[in-house]
Computed example of a mutant assay.
Amino acid sequence: MKRLVFLLLFVSGFTQAQSGLFEQANEAYANNEFETAIQKYEEILENGETSVAVYYNLGNAYYKQNKVAPSIYYYEKALQLDPTDKDVQNNIEFARNMTIDDIPVVEETGLGKSVNKLISTFTYNTWAYLAIALSILFVLFFLLYYFSRKPIQKRLFFGIASVAFLVGAISVYFAFKQQEIQFNNQYAIIFAEEAAIKNEPDQRGEVAFTLHEGTKAKVLEDFQGWVKIELANGSQGWIKNENLKKL
């Protein structure tokens, strides 16, 4: 019991300390002391605490200093936690306008585009919670259907239970698909002011194209200090590991 009390006190003290750091960082930001704010926000992250607010504020602090790559990086980190946050979505567009590279996006078409857009509406955790809630709803209305004596009520309860089961099953599928997207599709932000992208993972390889800070790329493969990336337009190449930061 004493160990439990000690643990609770430790967690409480740790949370208060983190809250204090966050308030100090916000105050520094409000006073245009962006370096101090950045230091304190990053200290929170180093202590193992992550949140949309910390990533968002950190992105804002870097944006105020015209540091394109880190601002976009932390906005992207915030969107990983909550892809529906409008403030982050708006600010990351401002930051992207500061980048040099104009990479055209190959748009999806048809049903696949609509499904992927629907899946990206929520995080996989939200889809999972929705599936659990609908499962409970299904059980509740199925029991009401089973014990009901009136035909009209039985049809109503059965219909609601069926819809809850169907939508719950879809939510489970979307949860796994969103998890697959987030964990299997790794991205990175170019941090080098200018980086040569090679056709092969070799310093003597031919330069395929050049990228600049702030550009987002999909990570395909790691090989002996090199990373194979793919851009939104489908272009691929190898970049030195130190020239980018993985999300």
Results as ranks from 00 to 15, higher is better:
residue 187 Y to H: 12
residue 41 Y to R: 00
residue 172 V to W: 14
residue 122 F to S: 00
residue 112 G to K: 15
residue 62 Y to W: 09
residue 131 A to Y: 03
residue 186 Q to E: 14
residue 84 T to H: 10
residue 200 E to W: 06
residue 36 T to K: 15
residue 205 G to Y: 11
residue 1 M to L: 09
residue 168 G to D: 01
residue 201 P to A: 03
residue 220 L to N: 10
residue 144 L to P: 01
residue 192 A to D: 12
residue 91 N to W: 12
residue 48 G to I: 06
residue 146 Y to Q: 08
residue 125 N to P: 02
residue 73 Y to D: 04
residue 31 N to A: 11
residue 37 A to L: 02
residue 185 N to A: 05
residue 209 F to S: 02
residue 195 A to N: 02
residue 61 A to T: 06
residue 193 E to R: 06
residue 19 S to F: 11
residue 140 L to E: 09
residue 28 A to L: 07
residue 80 Q to G: 03
residue 104 P to K: 03
residue 77 K to N: 13
residue 25 A to W: 15
residue 140 L to W: 14
residue 121 T to P: 00
residue 225 G to T: 05
residue 242 E to P: 03
residue 193 E to K: 13
residue 190 I to T: 00
residue 49 E to G: 01
residue 74 Y to K: 00
residue 68 V to M: 04
residue 147 F to A: 00
residue 53 A to C: 02
residue 88 V to E: 07
residue 27 E to P: 04
residue 191 F to C: 00
residue 176 F to W: 08
residue 246 K to D: 02
residue 24 Q to D: 15
residue 51 S to W: 15
residue 27 E to G: 02
residue 14 F to N: 05
residue 35 E to N: 13
residue 197 I to E: 08
residue 241 N to W: 07
residue 230 E to N: 04
residue 166 L to P: 01
residue 43 E to N: 11
residue 221 E to W: 08
residue 32 N to R: 14
residue 178 Q to W: 04
residue 205 G to M: 12
residue 158 F to H: 08
residue 5 V to Y: 13
residue 162 S to Y: 10
residue 168 G to R: 04
residue 111 L to T: 08
residue 14 F to Y: 14
residue 113 K to W: 08
residue 244 L to C: 03
residue 29 Y to G: 00
residue 177 K to A: 09
residue 3 R to F: 10
residue 192 A to S: 14
residue 154 K to I: 01
residue 197 I to K: 01
residue 18 Q to F: 04
residue 229 I to R: 02
residue 66 N to T: 06
residue 183 F to T: 12
residue 84 T to L: 08
residue 242 E to H: 13
residue 70 P to C: 04
residue 25 A to E: 03
residue 175 A to L: 06
residue 127 W to Q: 02
residue 211 L to R: 00
residue 170 I to C: 06
residue 47 N to C: 00
residue 39 Q to G: 11
residue 240 K to R: 14
residue 241 N to E: 12
residue 71 S to D: 06
residue 126 T to R: 15
residue 59 G to H: 03
residue 176 F to K: 01
residue 96 R to L: 12
residue 163 V to W: 11
residue 197 I to V: 12
residue 160 I to M: 03
residue 57 N to W: 15
residue 26 N to D: 14
residue 217 A to L: 07
residue 76 E to G: 07
residue 23 E to D: 12
residue 172 V to G: 02
residue 157 F to V: 02
residue 30 A to T: 10
residue 81 L to V: 03
residue 2 K to R: 14
residue 46 E to W: 04
residue 60 N to R: 08
residue 205 G to R: 00
residue 188 A to E: 05
residue 92 I to W: 08
residue 91 N to E: 12
residue 100 I to V: 13
residue 86 K to G: 02
residue 201 P to V: 04
residue 65 Q to T: 04
residue 178 Q to M: 10
residue 20 G to D: 15
residue 102 D to Q: 13
residue 117 K to T: 10
residue 126 T to H: 14
residue 12 S to Y: 13
residue 119 I to N: 04
residue 168 G to C: 06
residue 72 I to L: 04
residue 126 T to E: 14
residue 14 F to V: 05
residue 243 N to A: 07
residue 115 V to F: 13
residue 39 Q to W: 08
residue 115 V to E: 03
residue 65 Q to K: 14
residue 49 E to M: 09
residue 244 L to P: 06
residue 32 N to V: 07
residue 39 Q to E: 15
residue 31 N to S: 10
residue 80 Q to W: 06
residue 6 F to P: 00
residue 225 G to P: 12
residue 13 G to T: 08
residue 216 K to M: 08
residue 72 I to P: 12
residue 6 F to C: 05
residue 30 A to W: 03
residue 54 V to S: 02
residue 169 A to D: 05
residue 127 W to K: 01
